[in-house]
Each structure stands twice: as C-alpha cells, then as structure tokens.
Design a protein around this nucleic acid. Structure first.
Lengths: 201, 201
DNA sequence: GCCAAAACGGAACATTCGTTCCGATGCGGT
DNA sequence: ACCGCATCGGAACGAATGTTCCGTTTTGGC
C-alpha cells in the first residue's frame, strides 16, 4: 500500500489531455471498422467477434473498448448500407407507383451486396427491435404512397401502408435467395412486386 | 473380473427378441414426438433439446437415442406440416393461375400455425439443404404452372418457374411478419402474390 | 423370482461465442 | 530519458446448447 506522501508525489504528474484521442486509438478504431465492414458484408451477421478482431489486427479487448456490444458494431457498419432505407422516402412529383419503384430500387440496390444488412431484414426475428424500427419507417413510406394514390389512382384500392412494408421485406427475402443478384435481378423482382401493388384497369 | 465358467453360464440366457420394440420404448418415443411437436410449433426451431425432453418427461439420453441429432427430430415433426408442400402439386383441370392459388393456399394454411416450419422456410440460410430441397419442389410446381399457362395464358409471359418458387417463399416471409395471421390474411397476401404472377390484359 | 440385455436419466463433456479482466505495452507530457 | 496512465492483447469467464457416457432401472423370457 502506498504512503500518503507517495500519493501526493504521484498526483503531481496528473495532466489534462490537451486534445483529441491518442493516435493509435483512432487508427485502431478505423482498422476495426474496416475489418468489420468487410467481414459483415461478406459473411452476414453471424461473424465471430474474435474473427473481426483478428482481421483488424487487434485484440478482442480493443474491439470491445470501441464497441461495447456486438450490436454497437453491427449498427456502426450496417448504418451506412441501410441509410438509403432509413433516410429516403418517396420523391415528389411522381405517381405513387413510380415513386415506389424508385424507392424500392434505391433502397435495395446497396443492400444486396451486404449480407449483414440483408440478414438484418430478411432473417431477423419478427419481434426484433431493428426490424420493428424498419417496419415503422417502411409503413410510413407506404402511408405516403397510399395517400398519393388517392389522387393519381396508381395503386390498387385494397392496398394498405402495411401491405407495402411487407411486400418490401418479402422482396428482400427473395433477393437474399437469388444467387449473386445483379441489377437486372433487382429490377425484375421489384417489377413483380409493383404488379402486386399497382392498379390494373 | 468374471471367470470363464461364469461367462459361459451367463451366455445361456441370451434370447432372441421375438417381436416389436419394448413397450416403454414405443411409449417414450410417442411422448417425445408429442412434446416436440407442441414446442416446435409454438417456439420455433430454436428450442432447447433439454426443454423438449423435460416436457416429454424423459431424459435427454432417451431423446437422443430416438433422434440422434436435432435435425432428425425437426424433420420428424415438420415433415407432417410440410407435407402439404412436399406432396402436393397443381390440381388438374384448372387455369394455371387458379391452380397456383389453390396450391399456395393449401400449402400455406397449415404452415402459419407452425413456427418451426415457418422458420425453416422464412429464415433458413439460402444455402441450407432443407431450403434447397424445398426450392427444388417449388420450382417443379412453378414449371408445371408455366407449362400450363402456355395454353391458357393466365400467367404473365415473363414469369419463370423460379419466379414462382421465390414468390412463394417471399409470401412465407410476409406471413411470418404478420402477427397472428388468420385465413383472411393468408387469402389477402396470396392474392397480392398472384397479381404479381398473373397476366394483366 | 431371476437375470441379462435393453433402455433410461441426467450429470458431464465439448464447443461456441459474447464479454470481462488484468498484466504488459507504449504514448505523450515533462 | 523518465514515468504515469491510457490503451493494448488475449487468456479466462460464463452462459447456452448439442452430444456422449455410464451407473441405475426396467423389461420380458425363462
């Protein structure tokens, strides 16, 4: 046990951090994010944290200091790829059906190259928090589309906002099943989904 | 250690089993299947084997003697509920689109009350053996439908057998997301799916 | 009732994976 | 160059879960 005098001497060296984080901290964080991005994209949500740490060239302790839980890391990485879904809505000045086509295509295109993001939407437990948040946003978009269709009548009358949200997630699942989907596959399956929603004279 | 004479005496009692399994064996197997059916239906694929054994009133050892791996048990139980999918095809003497409606409805109705079966189809890894087998059967049905449509022209021209299989699985995912789906929900979402496949004059 | 084989129960083992802990390391201010 | 503290690496922990093993119990033919 240290004496009181020793404590006082030690305290003299206490220093305020003048600015920013240490250089190695920032570098490690960047390497972790880079490694996690690559591995989550390629392997899906179920990647071992140890594997990510190893790929990043750091210890698991370092990984957990930056991202206390697995979910924190997943959010950091999938946030980018889900942005097209989370931030965008229907562009104005278009019929409802065309706006939905644009929304679906824009949201799905970056998704299909990211297994983690697809897993998040296609395989998550129906009660999961992430999926619920996503459903809320999608239902909001669906609501806008139904509203818009009240003037342009491009959607079938029996389509609800919820239907649109579910159809989106069903399309995500379908694209997860297509091996190595390309732009044409996305276009085709979006087209089929739109036929389910569109008004047919 | 036993003497040689004792061994010989012991061997005299060896007897051929005249017929059938022991009574308790059959009873235990039945109880295991019953418990597993209930729990898998209600809780989905991720039920603890210990919980199934406990529910059945047997030890885990007994469970594993009857079903060496979890998959064996799952197959035993979901087989019944997937039968409508695995065994049935398109009924004859109907336009392709009507036959598909009947097939989808018949296959989906028993499914939605069985979380394990839904998990198997809606959340399985795209590369999983179970899903691949299912896809094969669905594609076969899809092929028949496309073929039939060559004479009755009730499906859109650009629909392929694969599209039909994917649309079915997309619908399973949608019904998994609907909270407590009833017959009306199944009918509605099947109807939407059929609009994606049907020819629109 | 006796006994050996069959079946049983459930503790123990093995593996996986998220997370925590702590002694070693090295950055940065003096 | 020194030294305290932030940071590091990775062993260790704990929980969940599939599977095995073995001492005990039950069954059924004699």
């Amino acid at each position: 046990m240290r004496s009181g005098a020793a404590w006082r001497a030690a305290r003299l060296v206490v220093v305020e951090r003048t600015q920013g984080p240490r250089r190695d901290v920032a570098a490690n964080r960047a390497r972790i994010v880079a490694a996690a991005t690559t591995m989550l994209r390629e392997c899906g949500l179920n990647v071992d944290m140890r594997a990510i740490a190893k790929e990043a060239g750091v210890g698991v302790g370092t990984l957990y200091r930056h991202f206390p839980t697995r979910q924190d890391l997943v959010h950091e990485v999938t946030g980018t790829d889900l942005a097209g879904l989370a931030t965008s809505g229907l562009s104005p000045d278009q019929p409802a059906i065309e706006a939905l086509r644009a929304f679906f295509t824009t949201a799905l295109t970056p998704l299909v190259r990211n297994r983690a993001a697809v897993d998040l939407l296609a395989n998550a437990e129906p009660a999961g928090a992430d999926l619920q948040r996503c459903l809320t946003h999608l239902t909001g978009v669906g609501h806008d589309a139904v509203e818009r269709s009240r003037t342009d009548h491009t959607l079938a009358d029996d389509i609800t906002a919820t239907d649109i949200a579910y159809q989106f997630l069903g399309t995500v699942r379908i694209l997860q099943l297509v091996p190595q989907p390309d732009i044409a596959d996305i276009g085709h399956h979006v087209e089929l989904t739109l036929r389910a929603l569109r008004r047919h004279s």
